[in-house]
Amino acid sequence: MNFDFDLIVRSFPLLLVGAGVTVQITAFSVSLGMLIGMFVGIARLSNTWIIKTLAAVYVDFIRGTPLLVQIFLIYFALPIIVGQRIDPFIAAITACSINSGAYVAEIFRGGIQSIDKGQMEAGRSLGMTWGQTMRHIILPQAFKRIIPPLGNEFIAMMKDSSLVSVIGFEELTRRGQLIIARTYGSFEIWLSVAFIYLIMTFTISRLVDYLERRYKIDDKH
């Protein structure tokens, strides 16, 4: 086998552009996913039957179906209902955020439930509303505890975002495919693609480690 190192050098700039797009999708999706996840996670703990049930249905549906199918549903099936083509970027971010939101919701729910219930009682006994206690007392404490699983979710999303290549969206994986179609350099390109993913996920996991340590020190004062 001939290993064409020059091909890697020549393709690298193009792959990096794709990597930038991957970072973009991931950042958007995880941010939106966190927002969705926080509200849905809280909703799952609601005392109101209908809110709790809707949240549970959402989480179960998303976690029970493949992300790939969810992407198809949004990109191919939704336009039939709304009668309008959906931009691949919008479709990619929508599918990924909705997907991420369900997993983040479970992370938030676990984090909130891990806080001693005396904290909520102390807040309520001082006359604070449920929402005020959530915001000032429960969520700040829960957030510190869920940094590691949120980091995992970030990394998982970054890897899963490769699935949006199927709707022709040119992130890292799709860029690789396109280059291979032109050059037939399967081995070199897939190796490069894998390497770039690895560098990105490794960086995130170091960042999360750092945040976790910093909050631990913060905790001790």
Partner: peptide
Amino acid sequence: NKVREEVGMVFQRFNLFPHKSVLDNVKLA
């Protein structure tokens, strides 16, 4: 909520807010 504003409670396990300083614990409500 109105009654809770007028009725203070002290718990067996203190239930202070661990992420806030003593001063912040007292002034929050």
